[in-house]
């Protein structure tokens, strides 16, 4: 028996496999395909203080081994979430985390306060890295002072597990990682999408309504892996790695680079059962390679 449990700075996950925000709905969309209580955690959609309609269609462009999205945080707002969605999802048998987004520090604080009162939500992921909203969003995550300001402000009002999600659209990600750790993050997740764009040569027009969007999928994996490794060197808090994870091998690579847990995003669209397969695959890998605990893989890259 392999021990799959992960200690995320005091919060126990039954295994390291989580889903990434914006790619797994509220979990319900996947229930026909597998039992989502088998997951280590589910990160629900980006949630903001107010209702947001998101960006205009087209919001998606397929690119080589990846995709660009410009959804723009479409959601009904945190109050709607607390009233209508939370009661439905609170007993799913896995940790349901809320991805908190905003444009102003004030909004992040108010949203986090609402989620803090939801008993069965063990933590939030502070999204200071969304490339798809006009103001705020990613801007917070691209400089140390603004990242620190928003994390410190939320830390004051949010009493449970505070995960902070970093943007890869920066020059020195390790520096930002260290700064948000100092500001009170319990864990750090990365990467959010990379800013990219696509043009249709036939029509000579941009494909996305917003012109630029966020790149995800296998195309970003080497960059994500490098960033996870760099941040792992710079901080002590656990890291949740993501970016292009399609299968067990990818997940193991992120753990070897220093991630305590992983999130799977775009791959859910192609194989809705992929996260369940990774849970099984991790156990198999540990068995075959003589690891009694999956946590022994964390940072175990041999150089």
């Amino acid at each position: 028996m392999v021990d799959l449990k992960i200690d995320l700075n005091g919060l126990e996950l039954k295994n390291p496999v989580m889903t990434a925000s914006g790619t797994f709905g509220y979990g319900e969309e996947f229930m026909d395909f597998f039992d989502i209580s088998r997951l280590g955690g589910v990160m629900v959609k980006g949630t903001t203080l107010e209702h947001r309609e998101g960006n205009a269609y087209p919001r998606m462009a397929e690119t080589p081994q990846g995709m660009l999205n410009a959804v723009g945080l479409q959601n009904k707002g945190v109050h709607y979430f607390a009233e209508h969605i939370y009661p439905r999802i609170k007993d799913y048998g896995t940790h349901m985390f809320v991805n908190v987004s905003g444009s102003k520090i004030e909004d992040y604080i108010k949203t986090a306060e609402v989620v803090n009162d939801l008993e069965h939500i063990p933590g939030i992921e502070l999204n200071i890295s969304c490339p798809n909203v006009k103001e705020g969003g990613m801007a917070f995550g691209t400089s140390c002072p603004s990242a620190v300001a928003v994390v410190e402000a939320v830390r004051k009002v949010y009493k449970k597990h505070l995960m902070v999600k970093l943007s890869p659209n920066v020059t020195n990600i390790a520096e930002i990682g260290a700064a948000v750790e100092g500001a009170g993050a319990d864990s750090i997740s990365l990467i959010n999408t990379l800013l990219g764009m696509a043009i249709d040569a036939k029509t000579r027009k941009p494909i996305l309504s917003t012109i630029t969007g966020g790149l995800s999928g296998p195309a970003v994996k080497p960059i994500a892996l490098r960033m996870v490794w760099q941040v792992a060197q710079a901080v002590k808090v656990p890291i949740v790695g993501m970016g292009g994870i399609m299968n067990t091998t990818d997940a193991i690579e992120f753990m070897l680079a220093g991630a305590s847990a992983i999130q799977v995003g775009t791959a859910n669209f192609i194989d809705p059962c992929v996260t369940d397969k990774i849970v099984v695959g991790l156990e198999q890998y540990c068995q075959e390679n003589g690891f009694s605990k999956v946590s022994d893989l964390i940072g175990a890259m041999e150089v």
Binding site: T23, E53, R59, M60, A61, M67, N69, V71
Partner: peptide, 22 residues
Amino acid sequence: ENHMACGFGACLCCVADTLDGH
């Protein structure tokens, strides 16, 4: 026939503009 990433409600990429919003 909107462009889709998932096809089952997980990504919100395929929205149409309706009287009730996206």
